[in-house]
Protein backbone atom coordinates (compact mmCIF):
# COMPACT_ATOMS: atom_id res chain seq x y z
CA UNK A 1 0.00 0.00 0.00
CA UNK A 2 1.09 3.59 -0.53
CA UNK A 3 0.26 6.20 2.05
CA UNK A 4 1.51 9.14 4.10
CA UNK A 5 3.23 9.36 7.47
CA UNK A 6 0.20 11.13 8.97
CA UNK A 7 -2.02 8.17 8.10
CA UNK A 8 0.22 5.71 9.92
CA UNK A 9 0.45 8.14 12.85
CA UNK A 10 -3.36 8.29 13.06
CA UNK A 11 -3.56 4.48 13.15
CA UNK A 12 -0.89 4.30 15.86
CA UNK A 13 -2.62 7.04 17.88
CA UNK A 14 -6.01 5.28 17.74
CA UNK A 15 -4.39 2.02 18.82
CA UNK A 16 -2.84 3.75 21.79
CA UNK A 17 -6.08 5.51 22.81
CA UNK A 18 -8.12 2.32 22.59
CA UNK A 19 -5.60 0.28 24.64
CA UNK A 20 -6.11 -2.20 26.26
CA UNK A 21 -8.94 -2.80 23.79
CA UNK A 22 -8.54 -3.32 20.05
CA UNK A 23 -9.00 -0.27 17.84
CA UNK A 24 -10.36 -0.56 14.31
CA UNK A 25 -11.22 1.63 11.35
CA UNK A 26 -11.45 2.10 7.60
CA UNK A 27 -8.76 2.98 5.06
CA UNK A 28 -10.08 5.34 2.38
CA UNK A 29 -8.39 5.87 -0.94
CA UNK A 30 -8.16 4.25 -4.31
CA UNK A 31 -7.25 0.84 -5.67
CA UNK A 32 -4.65 1.42 -8.39
CA UNK A 33 -2.43 -0.79 -10.53
CA UNK A 34 0.45 0.21 -8.25
CA UNK A 35 -1.45 -1.05 -5.21
CA UNK A 36 -3.88 0.43 -2.74
CA UNK A 37 -3.38 4.15 -2.08
CA UNK A 38 -4.63 5.25 1.35
CA UNK A 39 -5.56 8.93 1.60
CA UNK A 40 -7.46 8.96 4.89
CA UNK A 41 -8.53 6.82 7.83
CA UNK A 42 -11.89 6.73 9.58
CA UNK A 43 -11.86 5.31 13.13
CA UNK A 44 -14.90 3.24 13.99
CA UNK A 45 -16.31 1.67 17.12
CA UNK A 46 -15.22 -1.85 17.99
CA UNK A 47 -18.72 -3.30 18.22
CA UNK A 48 -17.78 -6.48 20.11
CA UNK A 49 -19.90 -6.76 23.24
CA UNK A 50 -17.12 -8.55 25.15
CA UNK A 51 -13.46 -9.55 24.87
CA UNK A 52 -12.60 -6.30 23.08
CA UNK A 53 -9.01 -6.75 24.33
CA UNK A 54 -8.64 -9.69 21.96
CA UNK A 55 -11.29 -9.24 19.29
CA UNK A 56 -12.83 -6.56 17.09
CA UNK A 57 -15.86 -6.31 14.89
CA UNK A 58 -17.01 -3.64 12.43
CA UNK A 59 -20.75 -3.71 11.77
CA UNK A 60 -22.11 -3.70 8.25
CA UNK A 61 -24.10 -0.58 9.14
CA UNK A 62 -20.87 1.27 9.99
CA UNK A 63 -19.31 0.09 6.74
CA UNK A 64 -22.34 1.27 4.79
CA UNK A 65 -22.21 4.73 6.38
CA UNK A 66 -18.44 5.09 5.87
CA UNK A 67 -18.78 3.86 2.29
CA UNK A 68 -21.42 6.47 1.49
CA UNK A 69 -19.31 9.23 3.06
CA UNK A 70 -16.20 8.06 1.18
CA UNK A 71 -18.05 8.03 -2.13
CA UNK A 72 -19.18 11.63 -1.57
CA UNK A 73 -15.51 12.58 -1.16
CA UNK A 74 -14.56 10.62 -4.27
CA UNK A 75 -12.78 7.83 -2.39
CA UNK A 76 -13.42 4.13 -1.85
CA UNK A 77 -12.92 1.96 1.20
CA UNK A 78 -9.70 0.15 0.26
CA UNK A 79 -9.04 -1.63 3.53
CA UNK A 80 -9.24 -1.76 7.30
CA UNK A 81 -6.95 -1.38 10.26
CA UNK A 82 -7.01 -2.82 13.74
CA UNK A 83 -4.66 -3.06 16.70
CA UNK A 84 -3.22 -6.05 18.52
CA UNK A 85 -2.80 -4.94 22.17
CA UNK A 86 0.29 -6.61 23.65
CA UNK A 87 0.49 -8.92 20.64
CA UNK A 88 2.60 -8.88 17.47
CA UNK A 89 1.44 -7.08 14.32
CA UNK A 90 0.77 -10.21 12.33
CA UNK A 91 -2.58 -11.71 11.27
CA UNK A 92 -4.11 -14.25 13.62
CA UNK A 93 -6.10 -17.37 12.76
CA UNK A 94 -9.16 -15.32 13.72
CA UNK A 95 -8.16 -12.56 11.28
CA UNK A 96 -7.95 -15.17 8.51
CA UNK A 97 -11.18 -16.93 9.44
CA UNK A 98 -13.11 -13.65 9.60
CA UNK A 99 -11.49 -11.98 6.56
CA UNK A 100 -13.68 -10.46 3.89
CA UNK A 101 -12.99 -9.97 0.15
CA UNK A 102 -9.45 -10.35 -1.23
CA UNK A 103 -8.15 -7.02 -2.58
CA UNK A 104 -8.54 -5.00 0.59
CA UNK A 105 -5.46 -3.95 2.58
CA UNK A 106 -5.48 -5.11 6.19
CA UNK A 107 -3.26 -2.97 8.44
CA UNK A 108 -2.30 -4.19 11.92
CA UNK A 109 -0.57 -2.10 14.57
CA UNK A 110 0.97 -3.71 17.62
CA UNK A 111 0.41 -1.78 20.87
CA UNK A 112 2.60 -2.74 23.83
CA UNK A 113 1.45 -1.30 27.15
CA UNK A 114 -0.30 1.59 25.36
CA UNK A 115 2.78 2.36 23.28
CA UNK A 116 2.25 1.77 19.52
CA UNK A 117 4.92 -0.40 17.92
CA UNK A 118 5.29 -2.19 14.62
CA UNK A 119 2.75 -1.48 11.91
CA UNK A 120 2.26 -3.96 9.07
CA UNK A 121 0.02 -4.36 6.03
CA UNK A 122 -1.41 -7.57 4.59
CA UNK A 123 -3.47 -8.74 1.66
CA UNK A 124 -5.70 -11.79 1.59
CA UNK A 125 -4.62 -14.45 -0.91
CA UNK A 126 -7.24 -14.83 -3.71
CA UNK A 127 -8.24 -18.30 -2.50
CA UNK A 128 -8.58 -16.92 1.07
CA UNK A 129 -6.06 -19.48 2.37
CA UNK A 130 -3.55 -17.01 3.86
CA UNK A 131 -2.43 -13.44 4.25
CA UNK A 132 0.52 -12.13 2.27
CA UNK A 133 2.68 -9.32 3.64
CA UNK A 134 2.13 -6.09 1.74
CA UNK A 135 4.94 -3.48 1.65
CA UNK A 136 4.07 -0.03 3.04
CA UNK A 137 5.42 2.73 0.83
CA UNK A 138 5.47 6.20 2.38
CA UNK A 139 4.89 8.95 -0.14
CA UNK A 140 5.09 12.66 0.48
CA UNK A 141 3.13 13.98 -2.46
CA UNK A 142 -0.48 13.19 -3.16
CA UNK A 143 -0.47 11.88 -6.70
CA UNK A 144 -3.90 10.25 -6.66
CA UNK A 145 -6.95 12.48 -6.81
CA UNK A 146 -10.44 11.63 -5.62
Amino acid sequence: MRTHDEILDAIRSHGSKAYPEESCGFLLGRMTEAGNYVAAVVPVKNSRKSNRERRFRIEAEDFHRADQAARKQGWDIVGFYHSHPDHPARPSATDLAEATFPGYTYVIVSVLKRRPGQITAWSLWPDRSRFESEPIEIISEINVTP
Binding site: E22, C24, R48, N51, E53, R54, R55, F56, R57, I58, E59, A60, F63, H64, D67, F80, H82, H84, P85, D86, H87, P88, R90, P91, S92, A93, T94, D95, E98, A99, T100, F101, Y106, L112
Partner: peptide
Protein backbone atom coordinates in the same frame (compact mmCIF):
# COMPACT_ATOMS: atom_id res chain seq x y z
CA UNK B 1 -28.70 -2.17 -3.66
CA UNK B 2 -25.25 -2.18 -2.04
CA UNK B 3 -22.93 -5.09 -1.24
CA UNK B 4 -21.62 -4.44 2.27
CA UNK B 5 -19.02 -6.63 4.00
CA UNK B 6 -18.81 -6.95 7.77
CA UNK B 7 -15.31 -7.21 9.23
CA UNK B 8 -13.94 -8.91 12.32
CA UNK B 9 -10.73 -10.35 13.69
CA UNK B 10 -8.47 -10.37 16.70
CA UNK B 11 -5.16 -11.09 18.35
CA UNK B 12 -3.03 -14.19 17.79
CA UNK B 13 -2.95 -16.81 20.52
CA UNK B 14 0.65 -15.99 21.42
CA UNK B 15 1.40 -12.63 23.05
CA UNK B 16 4.75 -10.96 23.63
Amino acid sequence: LTIVPSIAGGCPAVSF
